[in-house]
């Protein structure tokens, strides 16, 4: 062994990790592909449900629905903004693509919540689970998304479902982390008080920890939403449709117009979703009025009450009017 090899042993000694991984992956693909294919099924159903709902409803009704939701959550100002923004999306002629992307993002976020919140609770409660999850979450957050694009395609194929899967991998970590943080930040004395009044672990979680961690969990949902949206373009490389596909195709053909339009669609969608979740968050922080005493529901109950003639109902109107004044 010459001196050069001693000083730089890595020319001779190295671990062919890349080869191992490739062999391993091939083996998994060969033997377990049906298993991975079966995982696709529930995601596919969810995606189809969202997609048929969003693309099936006529744009005008959809815009109205968004407006009503925004009014209920955050008041009429935001409702006006959101209706305008969605109107712009329609005018630009990218309504269909936007709804496809939205259904993808919603499916991904829905699954992220279903996976992330319980995992976050688990890691907040058990330090062993936290120690186990931490390096995995670190990896998920730092590894470039292109790296897992290929294995996912090999295992799940191409299309919208694998797109949702890569989006989940990319967007899940902040939700888990913020859920954990939120639960750990519940004041110790509140936990103690719950225990002093005889709460079971289950009751402690549902009646104190989760409600108090809600602003933090919603911040996590907001993060997950934004990250899912930013994954849309990357995911379009594995044949995911929607706005990302527009951008990708636009770049490929040097069609600046198409790419920019798609980009603007993504930005508008991001603004709409962000504002909605942000205001849901600030509402979770300061609860002052029950949801049925605000926004369109209040108007609706008032209208219903005026049509009733019974004096008791009249009183009800009076009460809910007083409710708005607070």
């Amino acid at each position: 062994m010459n001196l050069e090899n001693v000083l730089n042993p890595f020319t001779v000694w190295h671990v062919p990790l890349g080869q191992w991984l490739e062999t391993g992956l091939h083996w998994v693909v060969q033997h377990y592909r049906p298993l991975f294919q079966s995982i696709k099924w529930p995601i596919d159903q969810l995606l189809k449900a969202f997609d048929s709902a969003l693309t099936g409803i006529p744009p005008v009704i959809m815009i109205l629905c968004f407006g009503l939701i925004a009014w209920q959550i955050a008041g009429w100002r935001l409702a006006v903004k959101i209706v305008t923004l969605l109107f712009v999306v329609g005018i630009l002629g990218i309504w269909g693509e936007t709804m496809t992307t939205l259904s993808l993002v919603l499916s991904a976020v829905f699954l992220c919540i279903a996976i992330g919140v319980p995992l976050g609770v688990l890691t907040a409660r058990s330090s062993r689970a936290a120690a186990f999850c931490r390096p995995i979450l670190d990896t998920m957050q730092t590894i470039p998304s292109f790296v897992y694009l290929v294995p996912v395609v090999m295992l799940f194929g191409i299309g919208n479902v694998p797109g949702v899967i890569v989006t989940i991998i990319f967007a899940l970590p902040p939700l888990i982390r913020l859920t954990t943080l939120g639960i750990q930040q519940v004041p110790e004395e509140v936990v103690e008080a719950m225990r002093a009044f005889g709460a079971t672990n289950h009751q402690l979680l549902l009646k104190a920890q989760i409600p108090l961690a809600l602003p933090s969990i919603l911040a996590g949902v907001n993060q997950t939403l934004m990250m899912s949206l930013s994954m849309v373009v990357v995911a379009s490389m594995i044949a995911v449709g929607g706005l990302g596909q527009m951008v990708l195709r636009g770049i490929g053909r040097l069609d600046i117009g198409q790419a920019a339009t798609g980009g603007i669609g993504i930005v508008i969608l991001a603004i709409v979703l962000d504002r909605l979740t942000q205001s849901a968050m600030s509402r979770a922080r300061n609860v002052t009025l029950a949801w049925y005493k605000r926004g369109p529901t209040l108007v609706l109950t008032n209208i219903l009450n005026t049509f009733r003639v019974r004096p008791a109902a009249r009183q009800g109107v009076q009460e809910s009017r007083n409710g708005t004044a607070i």
Binding site: P187, E189, V190, A193, K207, L212, V287
Partner: peptide
């Protein structure tokens, strides 16, 4: 029944 120095009421 227990009463705490910092009240420890549930804010929500």
């Amino acid at each position: 029944g227990m009463v705490f120095q910092n009240m420890a009421l549930l804010p929500h």
